[in-house]
Amino acid sequence: MRALKAALWRLAQAVPVALMVVVLNFFLLKAVPGDMADVIAGEAGAATPEFMAQLRSQFGDDQPLPAQFIAYVKKVATFDLGWSFRYNASVASLIFDRLAATLLLMGLALLLAVLLGSALGVVAATTRQGWLRRLIGLFATLGFALPAFWLGLMIVVLFTLKLGWLPSSGLDTMGSDAHGWAYLRDVTVHLVMPVGCLAFSYLAMYIRLMHEAVRDVSQLDFVRTARAKGSSRRRQVWRHVVPNALVPVVTLTGVQFGALLSGSVTLETVFAWPGLGQLALAAVSSRDINLLLGLLFVTSLFVVVVNLLTEAVHGWLDPRIEHGARR
């Protein structure tokens, strides 16, 4: 019952956040100079004032800003994200056609970064081998220092152009009619470089964070008590230290989910990945406001949902957080 009340309270807190996102997205995008009529006129080379007025009337940009906002809110309230005049398709269909590719890339990259980074952080904090600790530290430093887009270009040059081991672009082989396991293998091969590159960019943060968290938790009284009772070193680390050190890692994971979308825009361009990043870039270039609003709304909702899940995991890992929130 308490868990249900806590979940409902978090959901109630998320509603005004979602409403604020809708308002800010709309007015910030409307404040940007230029619209799709300007882009179409530029592509045509010239356009008469009558033609420009007709375009703006078709796009709904000739209405006063408050009227445009009310119409937009009514559509969002009915889960209608509008129409993309650039693609001549509904915004919802465009987004959900590419959402799976982006979530696959982001999810695998984040999972790899969290698991490998946390494991290396634990090893760095607990190992007695100085060379291993320095090697992990060097690996983390490289993760901070190398830009993701540069690393992506370099591994394309190495593994595609030089060695010919991995495909450089796309979700699958163009024109392939593979099915079942053959298709799964094809997609997996295409995932290796973009997932590895994106995960490497965030890996260093988890190594450093887990390393510091393990060292701090190891000095707490309950760990010293377990040590005084004769608990083995391995049991101390995995039973007492690691579960408590995971709390800041979970926090960072929730924050990184939103940041991953902006990072995936760059890598989706480098690897020609058919995801939301490529779609957002095309929407910005063509001033497709309806598509941009839809993208911002959907991704903002995902961030809100992930934050709710992060708080729930916090309460599960450390019940004191949940009790403190209720007080």
Rank of each mutant, 00 (worst) to 15 (best):
K30G: 08
G42L: 04
L65W: 05
Q63C: 02
L55S: 09
F51S: 10
V32H: 10
K30I: 01
G34P: 13
S57Y: 00
D38T: 07
E43M: 12
A47N: 12
G45F: 09
E43G: 09
M36R: 14
P33D: 10
D35H: 09
A31C: 11
A47T: 10
P33A: 07
P66K: 01
Q58L: 13
K30H: 14
F51A: 15
P66Q: 08
R56K: 09
P64M: 08
A46T: 09
L55D: 04
V32W: 03
Q54E: 14
D38I: 01
R56Y: 04
P66S: 10
A53K: 03
P49I: 03
L28C: 13
D38V: 01
K30W: 10
V39F: 12
G42E: 12
P33E: 05
L65K: 03
A37Q: 06
L29V: 06
A37V: 03
A41S: 14
L28S: 13
P49R: 00
M52T: 11
G42W: 08
D62C: 08
P64Y: 04
V39M: 13
F51Q: 15
A41N: 02
A53R: 04
E50H: 05
D62R: 00
A47D: 12
V39S: 07
A47S: 15
G34N: 11
P64A: 09
G34W: 10
E43L: 12
A41W: 01
P49G: 01
G34E: 13
V32M: 14
M36T: 03
A53C: 05
A44C: 02
M52F: 08
G34I: 12
T48L: 10
G34Y: 11
P33C: 05
A44R: 15
Q54V: 00
M36I: 01
I40S: 03
E50V: 05
L29M: 12
P49D: 07
D35S: 08
L65V: 14
K30P: 01
P49E: 10
